[in-house]
């Protein structure tokens, strides 16, 4: 991501951070988020993610619950929630959310948990409906017309 594009995104106010160990998944999220007028900052590991947090005011954060080892994504979600309290922070999980996953989401400030097996486009669509319900409603009305 060029510095110029990040500056432009800051002006329009839509920056998303995606943290996931799989490059393929990161590329999918980046493509869908860009299509939805976000600038997607991607990170495969915790140091890169932490660097991104120090340099950007995030609007959305999509964090894998497993970055380098099981469960380390939850702590990162908590850090992002503290650093950017207005950001929509969500976590992707390889398994169906149970009571402990939902508890981890609540206690780390995540607003939603998504199954990693869900299509990336569905996850982004759901995120958009959370952060801008009016725009999402209008978009679906436009599609109906």
């Amino acid at each position: 991501m060029s510095a110029r594009r990040i500056r432009e995104a800051r002006r329009s106010g839509k920056i998303a951070l995606v943290v996931h160990p799989s490059l393929e998944t990161l590329a999918s999220f980046q493509a869908v988020l860009t299509k939805n007028e976000f600038v997607a900052i991607i990170a495969r590991d915790l140091p890169t993610a932490l660097l991104a947090i120090t340099q950007h005011r995030l609007d959305v954060a999509i964090i894998s619950s497993r970055i380098q080892e099981g469960g380390d994504g939850w702590a990162l979600a908590g850090v992002i929630h503290l650093a950017c309290p207005e950001a929509f922070v969500c976590v992707t999980s390889a398994t169906d959310p149970d009571i402990f996953i939902l508890q981890a989401a609540i206690n780390n400030g995540a607003r939603e948990v998504y199954l990693e097996s869900n299509p990336v486009s569905e996850i982004v669509k759901s995120i958009l409906s959370h952060i801008d319900p009016a725009a999402q409603k209008k978009a679906s009305e436009d599609r109906v017309q």
Partner: peptide
């Protein structure tokens, strides 16, 4: 429970 945890989230 799954239900009350989901609702809380």
């Amino acid at each position: 429970s799954l239900e009350n945890s989901r609702h809380a989230l």
